[in-house]
Write a protein that binds this DNA or RNA. Structure first.
Length: 151
DNA sequence: TTAGGTAGTCTCG
DNA sequence: CGAGACTACCTAA
């Protein structure tokens, strides 16, 4: 299966995963040379083969209290479902715009499934972009999970 | 279609 | 610190 997802950068620290990066296609994989990084790659490969394969990895995403709560809530979105930024905001007692802001800074894309959050009107954005390669990745991930896109 | 409202974060000074 | 500008938004008119 061909994914639009190019090489991934994996960052680890103190026994936990701290960052996942989408790298330009020309660049080779840049994976921290640790046993944990190996586990990360293996779990990601399983997931790319079969979306129902979840992740069991020690994660440490650095961020503010609010961001932590947003990222925590993201991990509760069931496979194959999409929520809107507004849904998230209501559950958190916050505002949609603030939720989008926090999602934008998610350091662990794919593992923390920020691709399962879309706008009430369109598709929102992904990895800091509202158009371009990262949005293709978002669409691929959603299709891979069996979501038919509302467009 | 737009106009306004919203919450959190960042950047100046 | 404070003001102002920036968002992967939403709702009402």
């Amino acid at each position: 299966m061909a994914t639009p997802i190019g090489p991934l950068g994996v960052a680890t620290d103190g026994g936990a995963v701290t960052g996942i990066d989408f790298l330009p296609p020309a660049v080779g994989p840049k994976v921290a040379d640790t046993p944990l990084a190996g586990r990360v790659v293996k779990e990601l490969e399983h997931y790319f083969l079969d979306a129902s394969h979840g992740f069991s990895l020690p994660l440490h995403a650095a961020g503010t209290e609010f961001q932590q709560s947003v990222w925590g809530l993201l991990r509760e979105i069931p496979l194959g479902q999409v929520w809107t930024y507004g849904d998230m905001a209501r559950k958190l007692g916050s505002s949609p715009r603030a939720v989008g802001n926090a999602c934008r800074h998610n350091p662990l894309p794919v593992i923390v499934p920020c691709h399962r959050v879309v706008s009430a009107q369109g598709l929102g954005g992904y990895a800091g972009e509202t158009a371009g390669r990262n949005m293709e990745i978002k669409c691929w991930l959603l299709a891979h999970e069996g979501v038919d896109l509302p467009l």
